[in-house]
Nucleic acid binder design. Sequence first.
DNA 1: AATAGTTAGTGTAGAATATACACTTAGTGT
DNA 2: ACACTAAGTGTATATTCTACACTAACTATT
Lengths: 229, 229
Amino acid sequence: MDISVDCVVFGFDDDELKVLLIEQKQPEGKSAIKPQKAVPGDLVRDDEGLDAAAERILNELTSLEGIYLKQFHAFGDPNRVTGLKDRDWLRSFRTHPERRVITVGYYSLVKMDDFNPQAASFAKKAQWIDVYKIPNLAFDHNEIVGEALKVLRHELMADHIGFELLPEKFTLSQLQKLYEIILDKKLDKRNFRKNILRTDTVTPLEEKQSGVLHKPAQLFSVKRPRKKD
Amino acid sequence: MDISVDCVVFGFDDDELKVLLIEQKQPEGKSAIKPQKAVPGDLVRDDEGLDAAAERILNELTSLEGIYLKQFHAFGDPNRVTGLKDRDWLRSFRTHPERRVITVGYYSLVKMDDFNPQAASFAKKAQWIDVYKIPNLAFDHNEIVGEALKVLRHELMADHIGFELLPEKFTLSQLQKLYEIILDKKLDKRNFRKNILRTDTVTPLEEKQSGVLHKPAQLFSVKRPRKKD
DNA sequence: AATAGTTAGTGTAGAATATACACTTAGTGT
DNA sequence: ACACTAAGTGTATATTCTACACTAACTATT
């Protein structure tokens, strides 16, 4: 058997929660077939830990580093891979295409800002897709994304990890919107603010929004552990 | 690579939280070496899902069926297995002893009543060991048990799954003791009872304790989904 | 028959937390 | 200056959490 790692990378963009999907390479000589989208993932190397593999693979495919990255579930159904396209693809790209693969799911949150679409090579391969509009994916990736989303919701409430999805500087309204979209429900503005400020994970900056056609909002950033001043 | 499943089976006995450990069979011709204890686990078969494997292995080693059994983490450190004894053991009992093995941890809760310890396969014997007095185990099983315990604590609070560890009929005091032991802290009696009764997962029986040298306690059982009466 | 010993069983007041709700403010564009 | 828009702010009420102490029911002993 082989082990792979699949990374469900969440990002947030104005008013959509997105997942990073790659477009699979076309198998040789089958160019007529529409390529499938998939979550970035690959086989774990023989001498590599799971967490390390996840980090490596995510890095290879997105050039991101040092990201909140968490194992959430192992998917081991022996019939995980049944699709014809999936089979074709494996035959073209894997040395042992018939081997059963068990995959370990990781999820991660990134600021879309940090994400570097510079590499045209990259932009060709990877794209952000609205979580609520995900097409059919390769293998069992729809299920994997679904599970990741459940975990994300849970962790969002428990650990307030949501800032990870926002740019360096953000307003509380943006943060609230993020929560509303992930949880798929409206939140009360005043209560939300109380809650967030109480957790003390966020610091107001000197700066304010500008160029908006309404009262400019206070900008915040994530509170980092104090360096000595 | 190979995949294995390890099952951390919790049971409860009066005032100790226990884990089911097996004693590994001795490798041939090394009878001087003290055998190691381990959590029941084995390789996943080639055509078998992870959950199915966990159930099968638990069943093979303990003759239990239909147990609350939940995947909690995959352990994939390439240096998971370093001990000399572990190596010896693998050489004796595995067809591919040098292969790297990634293991998926499951945990499960059983009523010790229902359990009839029957060592089989490569287990010399099976025994319940106090969670807080676990010796050095084979492989990375100490870590695995530790993680399982964390998850158990978490799920205990979230989902009130504690009854699984008690006999069919139990008193609220027994249940409270169970919580106290798992969480390793004292709880307030009245508040505890309020909480449990509020969750509505438990029904009082007609029956009371008897033969105790104090006021006999009401017996309860887990509330099962109503069958049609 | 009375007594001592033991755990079962119960309520409430105060603190903390969660919820619901509406108006004023500071900008931009016309 | 006026209209438009989202930012920002406080309070009263309901709910949940916490701390806390006495009486009840049974057994064993004398």
